[in-house]
Design a protein around this nucleic acid. Sequence first.
DNA 1: ATAATTTTGTCTTTATTTTAACAAAAATAC
DNA 2: GTATTTTTGTTAAAATAAAGACAAAATTAT
Lengths: 216, 216
Amino acid sequence: MSNKSFSNISIAVIRRLPKYHRYLKELLDKEVSRISSRELSKLIGFTASQIRQDLNCFGGFGQQGYGYNVDELYNEIGRILGLNKNYNVIIIGAGNLGQAIANYTNFERLGFEVLALFDINPKLIGVKIRDIPVLDMDELDEFTSEHNIDIAIICAPKDFAQEVTDKLNRKNVKGIWNFAPTDLNVAEGIIVENVNLSESLLTLSYLLNEKELLSG
Amino acid sequence: MSNKSFSNISIAVIRRLPKYHRYLKELLDKEVSRISSRELSKLIGFTASQIRQDLNCFGGFGQQGYGYNVDELYNEIGRILGLNKNYNVIIIGAGNLGQAIANYTNFERLGFEVLALFDINPKLIGVKIRDIPVLDMDELDEFTSEHNIDIAIICAPKDFAQEVTDKLNRKNVKGIWNFAPTDLNVAEGIIVENVNLSESLLTLSYLLNEKELLSG
DNA sequence: ATAATTTTGTCTTTATTTTAACAAAAATAC
DNA sequence: GTATTTTTGTTAAAATAAAGACAAAATTAT
């Protein structure tokens, strides 16, 4: 009864969806009302065939001889991505990274509302980021009990991340967006999306050296 | 004469290398001196077969009946990732995200030295993050001419990112680590590694809703 | 109104990636 | 010292993903 049984959509397709969403938004802003898979292909860099196949995982949104209605497709993909809902979010760790995310108002526009940040640093507790309060980490349990938190964003140091996750495991948190450079053990059903900056940087480092590495 | 001709290593393999590196470091810290692909598989979550195949892209680092020497393998993967070198880095944008990266001392330990941050905000210009100065964006051209910059980290807003990239395109910058939520047009030979936080968050959002989406 | 063009959705083929299998080599146990 | 076990490196098979091909449908041009 793995998660897989509910899903025949490959993760490769899923990870392309936000990019479609972003490019369609740009087209909308430019008041482009229709686009073919061929034109979109030139913009986004995927093959037209792949675009058509990706979209058809979720339904036939296009029309032969015409292409796709930009507004309709944008909204459909938004719905597929769950952007028709609102999400209550907390941020664990109110350092630079936590603050950066709290300040990024675009997430709010997409429906992700940050209710609070949590930190152990007395200098940060009580501070407000925009209108969002930084609370004492000791209040985390109470806060998550009283509020229906959908997503917790972990911006805490590596050695503290699992400890926090253990607390979240006992609450009704549905997803964790993890910026700590470690793999978390989560309770069944909790979805984790990792953003591992070190891994990204080391990939860049590899690519910078690849030519010499494989020739010399 | 595409980049591909130098490389028979798939990007999927490359993106797993930093994770091997991280887990091997943890084993080293625990003073584990040897590990088999089977044991590593249990830790890291890839199949033992995949681990052996990945490592064998770069050489036979193991020994039959024994496994892999942790210290040796850690160093070999570090070398493959280019961590035997030092990199001069600048950060474009000294907001929370730029500061977060500048403050993350682990990158320095890996050989990535941040020489300066750049911003247009007068309140930030002149400030120091650790010992790293925040310079006026107007000084970027001169600075990149005088220093041999390997990597530029773009933490500037989306609408400003391409403008900065155009400047970098004319310099000898080798790689761009891009946090702006947009695809950059770069000069030939410049490697771009994107960290698109919105795309990551929307992927999480999709996964949170996948069950209902595909059943209902 | 008709012909030519465009373009999707889907089926087929190709390519890539992952997993499985196993001989050969080394380590360990007895 | 020999047998047993472990474990790699590598080959083969299976699974997954991407690209190509094309009929059917709709649009656009004449």
